[in-house]
Simulated scan of single mutants.
Amino acid sequence: MVLGSFQRYFSMRHQNSKIQGLYDHCKNTFSPSGIPSPSSQPLHKLSLILDTIRPADVGLKKEAADDDRGLGFFGVNQQNRIARWAKPITYIDIHESDSFTMCIFCFPTSSVIPLHDHPGMTVFSKLLYGSLHVKAYDWVEPPCIVESKGPGHPQVRLAKLAVDKVLNAPCEPSVLYPKHGGNLHCFTAVRPCAMLDILAPPYKEYEGRKCTYYHDYPYSTFSAGNGPVCVGEEDEYAWLAETEPSDLYMNSGVYAGPPIKP
C-alpha cells in the first residue's frame, strides 16, 4: 500500500512538473505588450518543453479506434461537408490571460477547422496523438489585392502556400509567426487527433486580433494581369477571400489534467 501510494504520488508530481513547467515558462516569456524575437532562447526552450508533453500530461487518453461517423479524409463528396462532420470538435481551455492562451482541440475523423488567421500572434502547436492535415499560407508582401467588381465578386488578396502536409504523432512542435510560418491555416483530421496550442498574445478583437475566416481560390481564378508569380509556380499561390464559417462545429470540454498553479 505504501509503495503504491508513493508511485501514484511520484507519477502525479511528474505530470504536474510537465504542464506546470510549460505554464511557468510561458508566463515568464510572454507579456501583453509582445513576445521575444523568433530566434530568442526562450522561444527555443518553449519548443523543447512543448515537445515533451504527451496526452496523459494534459489528462487525455489516446484514441484507440477511429470515429465511425467520419467518412474518411479523401473519399468524400465535398458538397456534403456538414453531413460528414456530424461529431463536433472539442475545445478545452487550460489557461487564458492577457499574455497567452493554452488550449487543446480534440478532432474526430474528418472534422475541419476552416482556413483562418492569427493576426499579430505567434502560435506554438503540439500534435498529441493521431493524424492531422495542415494547409497554411502567408500573405504576399507588399499586398496584392484584386478589388471587388460588385455583388458576388469578393475582394481577394494573394497568399503563398507555406505548409501542405499530414502530421502524424509523435512529431516535433510547429510554430507560426505573425508574418511567416503559415499564419493562415486550415486543419483537417485524417484520424482522431488532439492538438495542444499556445497562442501569444491571445485573440482580442478590440486590440486588432480578431479571427477571420477565408476561402482560398486557385491562382488562375483571378490571375489575369495580377500577381507577381513566376511561370511554373502557380500552384504555390492562392487568392484568399474573407468568408463566414458556416460549417464549423465545436463544443467545450473540461480540462482533466493536473491543476496549474498560477
Rank of each mutant, 00 (worst) to 15 (best):
N80Y: 11
G181W: 11
G227K: 02
L3N: 07
P108N: 00
A86G: 03
K126F: 00
C211D: 11
A65F: 03
A136E: 05
D51I: 06
Q41S: 14
K27G: 05
H14V: 09
A169D: 12
M12Y: 12
P218M: 05
G182L: 06
P170T: 12
L248C: 01
W139Q: 02
H14I: 03
V231A: 08
P201Q: 15
M121Y: 05
P143Y: 09
K261E: 12
F30H: 08
Y9M: 05
R84D: 10
M195D: 12
N226G: 04
G59A: 13
A136M: 10
K126Y: 02
S5R: 10
I145G: 04
I113V: 09
P201V: 10
L71E: 15
V231H: 08
S174I: 14
P142D: 03
E205H: 08
P154T: 14
K27V: 13
A194L: 01
V112Q: 13
A224G: 06
V146A: 11
G59C: 03
R209Q: 13
L71D: 15
S39Y: 00
S99F: 03
H14T: 12
Q20M: 00
N16H: 10
L176C: 02
P192M: 00
E63A: 12
H215I: 02
L199K: 07
V229W: 09
L50H: 13
P258H: 07
F100T: 02
W239S: 07
S31R: 14
S37P: 01
I82A: 14
E233K: 13
S125T: 12
C106P: 00
P108C: 03
A83R: 12
L48K: 15
G70H: 03
E96L: 09
G59N: 01
F74G: 00
K165P: 00
C171Y: 05
I198P: 04
A241I: 07
K165F: 09
M121R: 06
I113K: 07
P55F: 14
R84Q: 13
S110C: 09
D247K: 05
A256F: 07
S39K: 10
I145Q: 11
T212S: 13
H153F: 14
W239G: 03
R8T: 15
R54P: 02
L43C: 13
H185S: 10
K87D: 15
E141T: 08
I113F: 08
F74H: 13
S131C: 08
G227S: 00
S37E: 15
K18C: 06
P143W: 07
P202N: 02
V254L: 11
K261H: 14
F100A: 05
A56E: 14
P38N: 08
Q15C: 06
D98W: 04
P154Y: 08
Y129P: 06
K160W: 01
A200V: 04
K204A: 07
D98L: 08
F124Y: 11
P228I: 02
T212H: 12
S220V: 07
